[in-house]
Design a protein around this nucleic acid. Sequence first.
DNA 1: AAGCTCTGCTTTTTT
DNA 2: AGCAGAGCTT
Length: 647
Amino acid sequence: MELNPQQRKAVEHTGSHVLVLAGAGTGKTMTIVARAAWLIAQGVHPSRILLLTFTRRAAREMIGRLRSEVGKKASRVLAGTFHHFCLLTMRRMPRQFEMEKETVIDRDDQIQLMRLARARFREKGRSFPSASKLVNACSYARNTNRPLREYLERYSDFDPEMVEKIIDCIAEYNKRKKVSRYLDFDDILFRFARILHQVPSVRDKLRGMYDHLLVDEMQDTNPLQWLILDGLRDPAELFCVGDDAQSIYAFRGADFRNVHSFTERVPRSVVLRLEENYRSTQEILDLANWLLEESPLGYDKHLRANRGKGILPRLIDFDDRFEEATWVTEDLVERHEGGATWSDHMVITRSARAARHLEAVLVEMEVPYRFIGGTQLFQSAHVKDLLCLIRSAVSHRDELAWVRYLTLWRGIGDVTAARVVEGLRERQSGEEAAAWLRDNWSKDPRVLKGLDLVVEHSEAPAEVVERSGEFLAPLLEKKYPNWNARKSDLELLARLARRHRSLTSFLQTYALDPVSRTDARRLEGEDAVTLITAHSAKGTESPVCYLIKVEPNMYPHVRSLGNFDEEEEERRVLYVGMTRARDELILTRSCTWGSKTVFWGGATAAHSAGGVAYLLHGIPDGIVKREVGVLQETDSGDGTITPWRDV
DNA sequence: AAGCTCTGCTTTTTT
DNA sequence: AGCAGAGCTT
């Protein structure tokens, strides 16, 4: 691996903790991999290195790269997200971490459980926050390690009486979680951090496990994660890499200012910088630099391209979203016909929803693509239905799964389901529970047959998925009008299940490592265009990048308007998007918004004082090549083009 | 106790 | 425009 002097200095640094402040494209990943390789070359045993990344995807990628540097030894390095690392460690030390075969639940399940907890607190005529709002509030408080009460009092506008009710409701949620032995995402970090900090023997043991902690995307770690790093360091040394301008996870409790106070928080530490950009051409960086300079927050970033000059980014205006999507697709096709591979192209979207026009056209024109981010396979309703049947058979305490499975049946509603859950809860073991259910079941006998089916084949997850899919098909067909479109997802699920030898491993793996539908469908390495959310795009790159819907209400997103910090975070989201491009950056936007009624306030929403309504407003001439989008075939219409108007 | 219908609310981003 | 929840009907 070739390193520049700055990178080498970071990689070979010894004797203190390090924060490497690295701008976009300055070789962050390479530096971390090189650091690991260098440590191993210095004689550090790979198992003494812990590599914490932001996504599983990033972890896989880094281990892959490390393997090509140091060979098989690479897989001895433990690499994963904070959540993975914590869960794995807790499962290995179940007694110390009070683990009792907990089921990890995702956000959907959390909301469902909160809904149950919330029911008691609703009064007619008075509004009570929605389940998802409650989940968010409680999650944010925990991730920022603040008492819930303090968070509600200081950062929300609920009146004191409401605050009390919310606190009670969340207490009820926590109680239910405990009874059902659920662990939500926050619990994983929280329990780990709590015991790490409060049980000295565990702390000593864990601190003795690693000599080097390598942390990627430091700017997006939240206080709870900081606490974990803090508890694990010394003698283990921190090697953290991050970029304040790419902090885009404030909604998860991250604060980009944290990297600025690194040396105060971590005694005996230094900050190093990487400033040379190896990814993009200067023109692309000029645009990204301009965007940051427009910010009232001083980022003190000015990326310089090691590669030199290239093509000016393009900013293309379209009449409507459909034309925009069609143009992008046609452009992709044209490039592909010209000999380019699909995989050299990445389309970046602000939200999963915002990509739906494009997805429609890509499908129509048969362009292979994979979607990263957004709704995952495991979150779609029909897949959940099937998984809940399996979960019910696996655990008699999995309240949410039971309710979902039971109410799938005609003639069974929440009252009956609640009664069953109640009864199951009393039983000590799965066998006892099964026997109890058999003896007390008076409804449709097929309900039990489904459960038996799973138990019978529990050694072969793929078979379970296939058979229960067939079993549930008649029910699901009735439930979902577009069943035919959904059916293929169950085949994907079976394919994923084939990799597992037990149902628990199958269920556990995908709780923390969701798979997108297109991902599951495509074989690894198959040539395809990448369609990706800006958030998921962090850490990736591509020769040609399209940034679609770079419009008012999208950048910044309407939801952030009126809040200065959130608007500025949107700037960083756009910055992340722009800096993914190696050779070509194409921004597209359209000036009409699909449906006429913009129900969420739309363009009328006001931006904050000192903030901006639209991040590309006032973009200077010459920094991008402005074009009016013209479709190849459809030159019809009335012969006019509606010009773009800044809002 | 279930099931159906209508209203109203929502749509950011992720482990 | 699409879905979830409330409330009404069976």
